[in-house]
């Protein structure tokens, strides 16, 4: 069996992983394994390697799209060709520029395509304050409508405090 990366040497490293119920298999030679840092388990990921190989359906699609006029990131100059070659992106804006080819690729790579983890603390606080303010303002309106002026005064204080804390 020949190596899938260099297509020259005999493949001696065989890797199998099941990602999203799909069996992915890679056969590569020792030298390519070394070059791809396959021996450093902290950095290697099979999905990463497959991306470079262009063996996934989605990467094939990305390749075809790249053929018709190369898209470039206006912020950093990274091109679709760079993306295909390195399986990396150039800057945070690249994620918007290459959104189309990324979308399919991410589906096969991850558990989902919507982030469910940690949100930057500042953003989270902002969202919480926003939600809290909306709730307080609704209560204030209701209090005024009910002519409950004592509650309304209290709510105004709370709104002022929430705005100051944000």
């Amino acid at each position: 069996m020949t190596c899938q990366l260099c297509k020259q040497r005999e493949a001696t490293v065989h890797l199998t992983q099941i990602i999203e119920n799909e069996m992915k298999k890679v056969d590569i030679c020792d030298q390519c394994a070394k070059e791809k840092q396959l021996h450093d388990p902290t950095t290697f990921s099979l999905a990463d390697l497959l991306l470079g190989l262009g063996s996934g359906k989605e990467t094939e699609k990305a390749k075809d799209e790249g053929g018709e006029g190369d898209i470039k990131c206006p912020n950093c100059g990274f091109s679709q060709a760079d993306f295909k070659k390195s399986a990396r992106l150039g800057c945070s804006e690249c994620y918007e520029v290459f959104a189309e080819s990324l979308a399919g690729m991410l589906k096969g790579m991850h558990k989902g395509t919507q982030h469910r983890g940690k949100v930057p603390p500042k953003l989270r606080r902002g969202l919480e304050t926003g939600a809290q303010l909306a709730r307080l303002e609704k209560q204030l309106k209701e209090a005024i409508a009910a002519e409950n002026f004592e509650a309304a005064a209290h709510l105004r204080d709370e709104i002022r405090a929430a705005k100051a804390a944000a």
Binding site: A47, Y95, H115, P120
Partner: peptide, 26 residues
């Protein structure tokens, strides 16, 4: 994150050079 701002989008989470680390980056 109190001192610096990281690349983040609500959909993709923390943005990384390689899409295999995207989201949580963990």
């Amino acid at each position: 994150q109190e001192q610096v701002e990281f690349a983040f989008t609500p959909q993709y989470g923390y943005l990384t050079a390689c899409p295999t680390n995207l989201g949580t980056g963990i």
